[in-house]
Simulated assay, not measured.
Amino acid sequence: MKTGLMKKRGDDENTGEIDLTPMLDVVFILLIFFIVTSVFITEAGIEVMKPEASTAEPRSKDLILIAVSNDGQIWIDGEQIDSRFIRSRFERRLAETPNASVVIQGDRSAQNEHVMSILRAARDAQIASVSISTEN
């Protein structure tokens, strides 16, 4: 009977390994923490040259940003849309955030008819607060 002299095979194989599971758990928890606490900046989709204004008020509520380029393209949430579908997009966003306000980022060389169509769509969607973004 040589049971006292024989070693178990499982003991030799696991002696030099380090368990990384707790470290991975901590890394994933930190990743989730930073994702949840980060601030997301919404943009309309294109960079426009805003007109200047003598009076300006900062906005900090839920915003629906809409941009109008100098050639009449209309952008909401990073995608270009047709002017006929602005009202439906506003209504969909209002369903998500009922107290949202619209901020129009119109290029200084954009035609007024495009801005007026956005204002009309916002009024038809019953949005209470509509403003135009300007440079100080």
Rank of each mutant, 00 (worst) to 15 (best):
K50M: 04
E96F: 04
N112M: 13
S101C: 13
L94Y: 00
A110G: 04
M23V: 14
V36Y: 08
S101V: 12
K7H: 09
V39F: 05
N136F: 10
I46A: 04
P98S: 02
E135S: 12
L5F: 09
L63H: 07
G16S: 14
D19R: 01
M1I: 07
T3K: 15
L20H: 09
N14V: 11
T134M: 02
G45Q: 05
E17N: 08
R123I: 14
S88E: 13
P58W: 01
N14G: 03
I32L: 15
R59A: 06
G4W: 14
T3H: 10
E47K: 11
S101Y: 11
V115L: 05
L94C: 06
I104E: 02
E57H: 03
I32R: 14
P58M: 05
L30D: 08
A44Y: 06
I76S: 03
I46K: 05
H114F: 12
V102A: 00
M1D: 03
A128W: 03
E17T: 15
F90I: 02
P22D: 04
R120H: 11
I46M: 01
E113Y: 13
F90G: 03
A67H: 00
T3G: 15
I81M: 05
R87W: 00
D25P: 06
Q126A: 12
M6S: 13
V102C: 00
F33E: 06
G78T: 04
S101H: 09
N99G: 07
I35N: 09
A100D: 02
S101G: 11
D107R: 01
T134S: 08
T134H: 05
E96V: 14
L94I: 08
M6T: 15
G45V: 00
E113A: 08
W75L: 00
L31Y: 07
S54M: 15
E47A: 07
S101P: 09
A100Q: 03
L5A: 07
F33K: 04
S131G: 07
A44E: 05
S88M: 04
I18W: 12
L20D: 03
S83C: 03
W75D: 06
D77S: 04
D25M: 12
V102I: 06
S131Y: 06
M23T: 04
A53L: 01
G10K: 05
P58H: 02
L65W: 10
T55E: 14
W75F: 05
I74P: 00
F40L: 06
N70C: 07
Q73R: 10
A53V: 06
A53S: 05
A56R: 08
V102E: 00
R84A: 13
R123Q: 15
S131A: 09
V102F: 03
N70E: 14
R92E: 15
E135R: 12
V36I: 09
S109R: 15
I104Y: 01
E47R: 11
S83D: 05
M116I: 12
R89V: 10
V48E: 02
K61W: 13
A95N: 12
E17K: 14
M116W: 07
D82I: 13
L24Q: 04
K7S: 01
E113I: 14
D12W: 10
V27M: 11
V102Q: 01
I118K: 01
A67S: 10
A110P: 02
E17V: 14
E91H: 07
K2V: 11
I46N: 00
F34P: 01
F85K: 08
E43C: 08
